[in-house]
Amino acid sequence: MSAIIEAKNLVFRYQENEEDGTPKKQEIPVLKDVSLSIEKGSFTAILGHNGSGKSTFAKHINAILVPDEGKVYVDGMDTADEENLFAIRQKAGMVFQNPDNQIVATIVEEDVAFAPENLGVAPDEIRRRVDDALKAVKMYDYRSHAPTQLSGGQKQRVAIAGVIAMQPDCIILDEPTAMLDPQGRQEVMDTIRRLNRKKGITVVLITHYMEEAALADRIVVIDDGRVLLDDVPKKVFAQVETLQRVGLDVPQVTELAHLLRQEGIEIEKDIISAEECVAALEALLEKNRK
């Protein structure tokens, strides 16, 4: 498989301003040497606590920010090159945290049409893309509703449809579930997984929910502007202590298994779902009975 996103020795600093508006001499480094490559069609979760630089990294993929040092390539295109800007944004769509602040139009289907309209797609083709995108996020029945009539989860799905209508190869979601209730969160996560599995869209999910990250093929943990861990979920969550040291939790079942192991009970290290946990506990009890 080939890499669609490639970050090489990425460094980014924020410039803070003094009270009078002049830039401070000292810049605050947010990303310190991040190198990462993301495969086409994969589902990668980027984990990190607040201020770890995970959102800043996401903004680099979409060329909202450009690196101070190092390079970011999206499908072979350098994000620092202005000429590539719209081509990159079309390849790698971005979904933000607050669904309210990314919906532009007063009607669902008009909003989904916004990106193809900007790209100058012909009206018939826009209609087709809008319908496809709305069906892909299961919001087709709501196409003529006003966004204000929808729940948070539904709005976020419309926002995702708005990005899919560009027909991107990759979507980056920056904490898309942070402002939603549990049901909305479930809806959005189901949608993301379906898009990844069925349509083969590369997904980069920025999150701090462990349960969401556990659904990914690969987890990258970013801490203090550096890649701390980068592996499949089972291996990442097995490092309970490392994660807790950087202010991250592990899924509850993983923590349970970890605590049991500390008590000297021999249970697998790599439990990340409730089903696995139940199975492992059952097996243990079975063994003890014999």
Partner: peptide, 26 residues
């Protein structure tokens, strides 16, 4: 704050003014 976020989101969806823009509903 909303305005700023909306502007970023619009740019991410390739908005670049009226030039060369088509419409779903004509």
């Amino acid at each position: 704050r909303r305005a700023e976020e909306l502007a970023t989101a619009m740019e991410c969806r390739c908005y670049r003014g009226g030039e060369g823009r088509t419409r779903l509903r004509t």
